[in-house]
């Protein structure tokens, strides 16, 4: 296992120390908890947004703490949902009296731990609500399963709900906007290589030099199936097919695009993917309002990418364009 680490058991703690050292103008760490909170939290009168989950997805979620996005990020162990304790602590630290909205990715562990924290916080008199992001079309949605996963589309929820909260909107309104984003965003990912959880020391699976894993999540878990590797254009089309199949997009609709690198994939390749994604959208007469290319929701050192498409309306466009100032996501 080739990594810049000291102790596999302490990677999250040390990473958070490094993050706070790097960005003291944005974030602080809650004493005794792996929670990064906005430096000036609680913002009195503003609804606070809290997200988080397992670590290993950096810059998600700590990199999105700041003006116009999150008020706190709760950082679990690598790929492991945080327990209710730090979530509760985050809620208390950022509650500015107007309530706290939790943005949770749809994983059994995340949902259960955030729910438990919410229950306790409500018993302590804090107004807490939550939304669950499930943008990953790789996984069949069904009430008989754990449902779709939350992946990179979550960052759109952070950005847009964060901008909405900044306007002084109430928790109900913000939740409605967040739910609109969730119902309008679809993502699909794939990987060229596995990743190594530091404490495990070896990859969860292996791929041949000629293979790729389609429908890859962001936790090193295998995807829906394996295929022979193909060209960037074919792959982009394959991901877009699955996404468009699941979205009701019509000629003239406007979208935001996110080409997300899982970590090892160079920006060069993400732009090559973006090129084809744009072509496909144009062929479908879909207007592209804004494009984000980079690493937004990673999976340790995995090589791979995901494509997310968010259907926009006037409200979402306005909020997407609103100023955001966080360590990892800035809109001027």
């Amino acid at each position: 296992m080739k990594k810049f680490i000291n102790n596999p058991e302490r990677v999250v703690d040390e990473m958070l120390e490094g993050m706070v050292a790097a960005h003291p103008e944005y974030i602080r760490k809650l004493e005794g908890f792996n929670v990064l909170a906005r430096k000036n939290a609680p913002v009195i009168g503003k609804v606070a947004l809290v997200s988080g989950g397992g670590s290993g997805h950096e810059p998600a979620h700590g990199g999105y703490v700041g003006k116009g996005m999150l008020d706190a990020a709760v950082c679990g162990n690598v790929f492991t949902s945080p327990t209710p304790d730090p979530i509760l602590e985050a809620i208390k630290a950022v509650n500015g009296g107007a309530g706290v909205l939790l943005i949770v990715k749809n994983y059994t562990g995340d949902v259960m731990n955030f729910e438990m924290a919410r229950d306790i916080a409500e018993m302590e008199g804090i107004n807490v609500d939550y939304v669950i992001v499930n943008d990953d079309v790789a996984v069949e949605n069904s009430t008989y399963t754990a449902g779709r996963r939350g992946i990179a589309g979550t960052v759109f929820v952070h950005k847009i709900a964060g901008a909405k909260a900044e306007t002084g909107a109430g928790i109900k309104e913000i939740k409605a906007t967040a739910l609109k984003v969730i119902s309008n965003v679809r993502s699909m990912g794939m990987a060229l290589s596995p990743c190594i959880i530091p404490a495990a020391g070896k990859p969860n699976f292996t791929l041949l030099e000629s293979e790729m894993e389609i429908g890859m999540g962001i936790h090193g878990e295998p995807g829906t199936h394996r295929e022979k590797i193909r060209t960037a254009d074919e792959l982009a089309a394959q991901l877009m097919d699955k996404i468009l199949e699941d979205m009701s997009l019509h000629a003239g609709d406007e979208v935001a695009v996110m080409i997300n690198g899982l970590a090892a994939t160079p920006l060069m390749e993400l732009y090559i993917i973006n090129r084809r994604v744009h072509d496909i959208l144009k062929q479908n007469e879909i207007k592209i309002y804004k494009t984000f290319v980079g690493e937004f929701m990673t999976s340790l050192e995995m090589a791979g990418c995901s494509v997310s498409i968010l259907k926009l309306d006037d409200e979402l466009k306005l909020l997407l364009d609103a100023e955001a100032d966080t360590p990892a996501f800035k809109v001027i």
Partner: peptide
């Protein structure tokens, strides 16, 4: 408080 993930709750 310490397991996290699905198994913790």
């Amino acid at each position: 408080s310490n397991v996290g993930g699905a198994a913790g709750p």
